[in-house]
Amino acid sequence: MKRSKNMNFQKLAADILKNVGGNENIISLVHCATRLRFTLKNVSKANEEKIKELPGVIGVVNKAQFQVVIGNDVAFVYNELIKLGDLKKQESENSGKFKGNIFERLIYVITGIFQPLIAAIAAAGMLKAVLLILTNYFGLSKDGQNYQIINFVADAAFYFLPILIAHSTAVKFKTNQYLAMAVGALLVHPSR
C-alpha cells in the first residue's frame, strides 16, 4: 500500500484518540479497507464534529460502531493508534465489557466475527466477476483449464466459509480455534 505524502499519521492518530475519549473509552479497534472501527464504552464522549474537521478524516459514521472514515491510508493511522494507545493490551483488558441493548450487543458480536472474513469474501467475489468478464467478453471457455483453476480459487472461500466463520467465532469468543474449525469442517464434509 502506498503511503500518502505530507500526512502526519502519528498526529492524526493522537487527535483521533483524544477525540474518541482516550484510551479508557475504547473497548476495541479494528479497521477495514477505509475505516477505523471503534467499539466505545461511552459514545457520548466522542467528539464527532472535531474528528470530522481533522485533516485526513473523510467522515464519521456513528451506528452500532463508531467509525472514522480515513480512506486508503487507514492502515497507517491504525498502526499509529495501536502504538499510541497500547490498544491491543486495552482490548484484552476490556474483553466482554461491552454494554448496550441487545441489538447493539448482537451487532457487536456479528461485526467482530465477520470483520476478518471480509477480505477473503471480497477477493472471491472479485475473482468471480473477473471470470464472468473473461467468459462473456474474451471468449474464455468454461471447459478450459484456465477457467477451472480460476473458478476453483474463487469458490474456495465460499465453499470453506463455515470453517472460516468457525475460526473467527472462536477467536471472538476466546475458545479453542481448532475444535471450532473441526466442527465447521463437518458442514463441508462431502459425505454429510
Results as ranks from 00 to 15, higher is better:
K2F: 13
K11L: 06
D15Q: 06
I16W: 03
N25R: 12
N25V: 07
I26E: 06
S28W: 01
A33S: 15
R35E: 00
L40Y: 02
K41R: 14
V43L: 04
S44A: 10
A46K: 00
K50S: 07
P55E: 00
N62E: 08
Q65D: 13
F66K: 08
F66L: 03
Q67M: 10
V68R: 02
N72T: 05
F76I: 07
F76T: 14
Y78T: 10
Y78F: 02
L81K: 05
L81I: 09
L87E: 03
Q90K: 13
E93D: 11
E93K: 03
N94S: 15
K97F: 12
E104Y: 01
R105W: 04
R105K: 14
L106G: 08
Y108I: 01
Y108N: 06
T111K: 00
I113N: 06
Q115K: 03
I118E: 00
A120N: 03
A122F: 13
G125A: 15
A129C: 07
L132Q: 01
I133Y: 15
T135E: 04
N136H: 06
F138D: 15
S141L: 03
S141V: 01
K142V: 10
Q148G: 01
N151I: 08
V153Y: 09
F158W: 10
F160W: 03
A166V: 07
S168L: 12
S168Y: 00
S168G: 05
A170H: 02
A170T: 04
Q177M: 10
Q177R: 01
Q177L: 08
Y178L: 15
M181H: 10
L186E: 09
L187Q: 10
L187H: 10
P190R: 08
R192C: 03
